[in-house]
Design a protein around this nucleic acid. Sequence first.
DNA 1: CGCATAAATGACTAATTAGTCAATCTCAGA
DNA 2: TCTGAGATTGACTAATTAGTCATTTATGCG
Lengths: 179, 179
Amino acid sequence: MKAALKLFTEMGFHGTSTAQISKEAGVATGTLFNYFPTKEDLINGLYFDVKGQLSRSMGREIQAQSTFQDKLRKMWYNLIEWGLDNQNDFLFVGQFCSSPYITNYTREEVMKEYVFLHDLVKEGIANGEIRDYSEELTIAMFYQASRTVVNFILDSEPQDKNKVIEDGFQIVWEGLAKK
Amino acid sequence: MKAALKLFTEMGFHGTSTAQISKEAGVATGTLFNYFPTKEDLINGLYFDVKGQLSRSMGREIQAQSTFQDKLRKMWYNLIEWGLDNQNDFLFVGQFCSSPYITNYTREEVMKEYVFLHDLVKEGIANGEIRDYSEELTIAMFYQASRTVVNFILDSEPQDKNKVIEDGFQIVWEGLAKK
DNA sequence: CGCATAAATGACTAATTAGTCAATCTCAGA
DNA sequence: TCTGAGATTGACTAATTAGTCATTTATGCG
């Protein structure tokens, strides 16, 4: 799975042959198909795993934060830290989140892990912490903004990463918060 | 090119065979290779074309706007309108902007068309209209936010698109503007 | 040790791939 | 109507593809 992840992000799903994957993994092609009946099963397993890790990283220590802003900031930092520490996983999710090879079943299973994010946003709107935009739009803007920051850091390699991360949060917070 | 664009967005670069492209286009495979010596030439030509169209759409009527906020809002609407009206092009740019098949030459040629966006942001910072974040970060956040809104509209099909677009702009504007 | 089950192997196949090229067709101008 | 340069064609090739399976190797247990 690690080998496939690396190759998929470098050369895409169809661009990576099963022969390459097994070679990179140091096993025979037959072994690969022993564990994943088809190439699609492999990508779905990968997506499931990676999204699960992302979800778990994102929610880490959220409840320990006292204010709503701190909860959101903590989530922001979690998301970005995960992206920077797991670049292949980060790129993989970006490339394959809307890919036709991810089955609807996999997609739905993954969605179940993100309930707490919805709950947090709902709470923020209800308590008047953030503006009353559509919940889904708010989540999308927040999540994609964090991806933008990670991508920005990855391909512009700024001297002061931490400033970029905090600036990014300021932009998102000012954008969403009720004044 | 239109045929290739459609197929590439549906099934990816490697997922689309030259046979499929020529069939979709209603020509023989030989004809395809008469115009594009290799498959890579085709994708680079496509990227160049589509990005050019995006750039031209984005800059439309900007100078006619009086205030800085109106200029930015106009650009926001231009970007989103282009994405909604040219879904294949929009998806193509998203999928292939960081693809290894786009040569650096193509990428650099495309960049040249975006100078005016840099200039606008510089102007906004200099005049104290928007906060003094890194110019590149500001542009990335603005551009990716517009993509988030288009994607959101495309796959959640809200009743009131215009509200989503304007809400999206409010989020970005509040995020970037100097209070 | 011996045995049975499970895991790993890589040569193999049928299908598909990007790209070629000799033959055919098109059509403007004489 | 005839000519010829350029456009179009699709059968073809050598390489590669996802996936198979008979055989070999590793492992756990008495």
